[in-house]
Computed example of a mutant assay.
Amino acid sequence: MIFIPLPFVVALLLLILFATVLRRDEEVAPNLPFLALILVSALQSALSGLRWGYGVQGVGLVAPVIAAVVPPLAYAGVSRLVRTSRRSLAARIGLHAVPAILILLLVSFWRDAIDVALVLVFVGYAVAILLLMRPGADALRLAPFEGAVPAYRAIIFTAAALCLSAAVDTFVFLDFISAHSERALALISVGNLAALVILGIAAAAASRSRVPPEITEVAPRSDTSEDKETIAAVDALMEAKKLYCDANLNLDRLARKAGIPARQISAAINRAMDKNVSQYVNDYRIGEACRLLSVTEKSVTEVMFEVGFQTKSNFNREFRRVTDMTPVAWRQRKR
């Protein structure tokens, strides 16, 4: 019987996931770092199968370098949804290539330090991603409000997967020292494969947010005493042009329409209304949905699409948040 190691199965599943995401995003600008992250995770899983399933020891020289590419790709994918970098493309590639170059040098000259270096790289990028996500879903100002919350959760899972991989590497390193690698194979098989699966799925989920062309960021004003004025300006824009009905509306586009820096809008709504911008926009959408449900005979699905939602799960969740009932129950009650 032909023996097929579990890592090869995981690699195949990740490739299928990549093909699915690529087909889904063929009509929009894809998040290339997240797509690359899925491919690299598949390659890493295949290398793990060769090393631990078939004993190809030479893979051990390549695998650490490939592993060092994973955290920068995750961070780059998140950065494309958070803000546009002012650095040139060459500068960004050069900066994020440093971990792989460092590991390559350690493979050549100091192999005992590879595990420690990889742990530092994974933890460092996980912390960097969490710092980017400090404002919550509002940090994803280039992501449509429709998918901001799911993308935010997927990114948090990505950071958690990086930490899990770092923890596995730490345990394996300690096991080699104390127990002569008796438990190393089990730890690698379970821990790293779990981390790769989480990374792949999280990257696929986060990549659902469309990435617009890069633009120059406008510096926010430091004066925070004009929160009411800021919100009034955004309210007037939302009511006059019904921007909330645009399914692809995001914080960056809203800021450009209002002529107000994105961070100023986010800060004003957070401070004055105790909610994030995604919830603020969805409040308008649910308000319009309630109006349509009460004065028209349109189906719930038609109303959902008309007010800017793209998925029933998100529409129902936000409708419950605002009204404490489902759209169908709300319509029945009003009638």
Rank of each mutant, 00 (worst) to 15 (best):
L254E: 03
P33H: 12
P212Y: 08
V168R: 02
K241Q: 06
E306Q: 15
L120F: 11
N248I: 06
K228T: 15
V300P: 03
L293C: 08
L47I: 09
V218G: 01
D169K: 15
P135H: 07
A247W: 02
T326I: 03
A143Y: 12
I215D: 01
A329T: 10
F34K: 09
P99D: 09
M304I: 06
L132C: 06
S299T: 15
A117Q: 01
P7W: 03
V28H: 05
V10I: 15
I4N: 06
V82E: 14
L196E: 10
S313K: 13
A139W: 05
A117N: 01
L237H: 04
K242I: 00
L15P: 05
V69R: 06
Y284M: 04
L118H: 07
S178W: 09
S181F: 02
A143M: 11
P71H: 03
T323H: 06
D138M: 10
A272T: 04
R285L: 00
V9Q: 12
P7C: 05
G200K: 05
L162E: 07
A11S: 13
L47Y: 03
P213V: 07
G60A: 04
D169W: 11
A240P: 03
D274T: 10
A137N: 06
V65R: 00
L105W: 14
V28E: 15
T170Q: 13
A19Q: 10
L22P: 04
R263T: 14
Y75S: 05
V98F: 12
L32Y: 14
G94N: 10
T20K: 13
K334E: 15
D235L: 00
E27L: 14
N248L: 10
A126K: 04
V59F: 01
I201S: 08
L104N: 10
Y280G: 08
